[in-house]
């Protein structure tokens, strides 16, 4: 038997890294040094896949859903291996601890929102989008932002991330949160001079 670890291109065009074709990658490593390497690789893989597929939510149950949206990453049918839920939970805990994900809703540890962009990066994307589409100085509802008629980089952005991004903008006086009739709204402000 010869095992060659090679990248694998999924039909979606996403390239799985070599380590994904290594059988022990799917087992939680008992030695701390090996576990750290594996966890770092899992973290990178999950975030880059999420970015590629625009996935925001990861649950520990995803490990056990064949054919689910995470299946291509969480299992490798070519070597007959898949990550087990407790192992995935440990990876997720690491991602939360390093600010690369956040438990959502809070007070549970089985589902996270993935920060493949940080709230700061989302803030910039949001502000760039608002200024390039002529939404400065107008009031917009959150719903209008995450479900725009024309698909935007912000389509389907989970509200908790949107709120964080707006908070970042509010801090630098580039946005103002406003209560509107049907929920929450925001007004994007022209950047103050010097910014």
């Amino acid at each position: 038997m010869s095992t060659t670890l090679a990248p694998y291109t999924l039909p979606s065009g996403f390239v799985l890294p070599s380590i994904h074709s290594g059988p022990p990658f799917f087992t939680q490593q008992p030695s701390p040094s090996s576990r750290k390497i594996a966890t770092d690789n899992w973290t990178r893989l999950i975030l880059s896949y999420a970015r590629h597929q625009k996935l925001f939510v990861l649950r520990t149950e995803d490990a056990d859903i064949p054919g689910g949206e995470w299946d291509d990453v969480l299992s490798n049918p070519r070597i007959n291996r898949k990550i087990r839920a407790p192992h995935l939970a440990a990876v997720i805990a690491h991602m939360v601890a390093t600010d690369q994900a956040v438990y959502d809703p809070p007070n549970q540890t089985s589902a996270v929102l993935l920060y493949w962009r940080t709230p700061e990066e989302w803030a910039q994307v949001l502000y760039d989008w608002a200024s390039s589409t002529g939404h400065l100085n107008t009031i917009m509802t959150f719903y209008e932002i995450v479900e725009p008629p024309v698909p935007s980089p912000l389509s389907d952005l989970p509200l908790p991330i949107l709120r964080k991004a707006i908070a970042v903008l509010a801090k630098s006086s580039r946005a103002q949160v406003i209560a509107v009739a049907d929920g929450e709204g925001v007004r994007f402000l022209t950047a103050p001079p010097g910014r």
Partner: peptide
């Protein structure tokens, strides 16, 4: 080496990563 608990043949096996071929 790394542990593999899902070896279909042996149940548990160990992999020496340096003895595996990496194509990148």
């Amino acid at each position: 080496c790394w542990l593999d608990e899902q070896d279909p043949e042996y149940g548990v096996s160990y992999w020496v990563l340096s003895a595996m071929r990496w194509d990148e």
